[in-house]
């Protein structure tokens, strides 16, 4: 099955916020880079492209047939989406195991796993 892993950064420190990022030790920062690299090189993984920051996002809804465009990420989602990747896995347990290796999942964010395709 093919899964889309949506990475919600939540409170996760990222290099985009240098102040928060600096709260991680050098070793922790290196671990985050190494973990993402290992995940991207895992067989079955198709890495997503780097996403722009939430501030650069625009949200589109359609009301009464007209596009209603608002600034920022989808408001109903408390934490903005930070990244994504595709994973070709045997089953949900394999996808959960990969999701659990994504640093955001342990640093205050979460990873949403959704099957894609085959509908």
């Amino acid at each position: 099955m093919r899964y889309l892993l949506l990475i919600h950064q939540g409170e996760t420190p990222t290099p985009r916020d240098p102040e928060a990022w600096a709260r991680l030790s050098e070793a922790e920062q290196q671990a985050v880079f190494a973990d993402y690299q290992a995940i991207n090189q895992t067989p079955g993984v198709t890495p997503g492209e780097q996403m722009g920051p939430p501030e650069a996002a625009t949200t589109v809804r359609v009301e009464d047939g007209r596009p209603l465009v608002t600034d920022g990420p989808f408001a109903a989602m408390k934490e903005a989406l930070g990244g994504y990747l595709f994973y070709e896995a045997d089953d949900l347990d394999a996808a959960i195991a990969l999701a659990a290796r994504i640093p955001a999942a342990r640093l205050g964010g979460a990873v949403e796993v959704r099957p894609v395709g085959g509908w």
């Binding site: 099955m1 899964y3 896995a89 045997d90 089953d91 949900l92 347990d93 996808a95 195991a97 796993v113 099957p115």
Partner: peptide
């Protein structure tokens, strides 16, 4: 739809 496996997990899981 989510591909929940029909399997007994192993080890830590």
């Amino acid at each position: 739809a989510a591909g929940i496996p029909f399997r007994v997990p192993e080890g830590e899981t």
